[in-house]
Measured scan of single mutants.
Amino acid sequence: MDVFMKGLSKAKEGVVAAAEKTKQGVAEAAGKTKEGVLYVGSKTKEGVVHGVATVAEKTKEQVTNVGGAVVTGVTAVAQKTVEGAGSIAAATGFVKKDQLGKNEEGAPQEGILEDMPVDPDNEAYEMPSEEGYQDYEPEA
């Protein structure tokens, strides 16, 4: 019985440690998101679009440190934060509304985080759909 109880105690310690790591990862992701939003706020009209992409990228980098179902929630929060940063930029006159959601080359930025393969159960990952990809044929 002692062996059984000791095993359960060790398992509990492992769960607590994993929860603490997840909590730490979420806190880091939130900190990076805040950094990115402050970065966007300090940019001029020309830099705002690039700044919004930076927020998304920093958040995406930190999301990889967070495991399990938390990833889905962090990704949703990050996307809403990026959308909010863009709205703030438009409201303050840093950028025109028609410039939001495009990178410096004018290509749409939507789907940055949505296409990231995420499995809350950590069982399997699927690649994003290939609808947006084109076949590449090298020139002879």
Rank of each mutant, 00 (worst) to 15 (best):
T75Q: 14
T64L: 12
A89L: 14
D98W: 13
H50L: 12
Y136D: 02
P128F: 06
M1P: 00
T22K: 00
V15I: 12
G86L: 13
G25M: 10
A78L: 14
E114K: 08
D121P: 09
A107P: 06
T72R: 13
G84A: 14
K32P: 01
K10E: 01
V15Y: 15
V48Y: 12
A124H: 07
G47L: 13
G14C: 12
E123G: 08
G106M: 07
V40M: 11
A53T: 04
P128H: 03
L8T: 00
Q134C: 12
G47Y: 09
P128N: 10
V49E: 03
T64R: 11
E13D: 08
D2S: 02
A30C: 07
T64A: 08
Q62A: 07
I112K: 04
D119A: 12
V77I: 14
K12E: 00
G93C: 03
E28V: 10
N122Q: 08
Q24H: 12
A17L: 06
A124I: 02
K12R: 13
G36T: 15
Y125D: 09
G132S: 04
K6E: 02
A85I: 13
Y133H: 12
E13T: 07
L38W: 06
V26P: 00
E13Q: 06
A140I: 06
K96T: 13
K45T: 12
K6H: 02
E137K: 03
G86T: 09
V71I: 14
G47K: 06
K12N: 01
E20V: 03
Y133I: 03
V70D: 01
D135P: 04
V74C: 11
M1C: 00
G7R: 15
F94S: 06
A19V: 10
E61W: 12
G67N: 04
Q24Y: 15
L38D: 01
E137Y: 07
E137I: 03
E35K: 10
G93E: 04
K45Y: 04
V70C: 04
T92I: 03
E114T: 03
G41C: 11
Y136C: 07
D98L: 14
A11N: 00
G73W: 13
M127H: 07
S42I: 13
A91R: 06
E130K: 10
V26E: 00
G14Y: 08
E130V: 14
T92K: 03
A140D: 09
A91C: 11
T72E: 15
V40T: 01
K43G: 01
K32F: 11
V49W: 13
A89G: 05
T44A: 07
T64H: 11
G36S: 14
G68E: 13
A27D: 01
G86R: 08
V52A: 09
T72Y: 04
K43V: 13
A91D: 04
K21G: 00
A27R: 08
G51V: 14
T75D: 03
Q134H: 04
E35V: 07
T22S: 06
G106Q: 06
V3S: 03
A27W: 10
G73L: 13
L100W: 02
V74H: 01
Q24M: 15
D135E: 13
Y136H: 10
E20N: 11
V82G: 03
A30W: 11
E20D: 07
A107K: 10
V26I: 15
K32M: 09
V52H: 01
D119V: 07
G31R: 09
G106T: 07
L113A: 12
T81P: 02
K6D: 03
G41Y: 09
E130S: 04
L38E: 03
V71P: 01
A89T: 07
S9P: 00
P108C: 10
D119S: 04
N103I: 04
V49G: 03
S87V: 13
K10S: 04
T33H: 01
A107V: 10
Q62F: 08
Q109I: 11
K6C: 03
T75L: 14
L100R: 11
E126I: 14
Y133K: 03
G101Q: 12
K12L: 12
T33Q: 01
E20P: 00
G132Y: 09
K102L: 10
P120H: 09
G51A: 12
T75Y: 12
V15A: 03
E20T: 07
H50R: 14
G132R: 13
T72W: 06
A91Q: 09
V37W: 15
V48A: 04
E61K: 09
A30M: 15
T22R: 01
L8W: 11
D115V: 08
P117N: 09
E83W: 11
Y133D: 10
E35R: 08
T33W: 15
A124G: 09
K97G: 12
K102I: 10
E61G: 06
V118R: 12
Q99K: 02
V74Q: 01
P108M: 11
Y39C: 04
I112L: 05
G47N: 12
A30D: 00
E105K: 02
F4Q: 00
E46F: 06
K43P: 00
K34W: 15
G86F: 14
G132H: 05
V52M: 13
Q79T: 06
V74S: 01
I88G: 04
F94Q: 07
V49Q: 10
K45G: 03
Y133F: 06
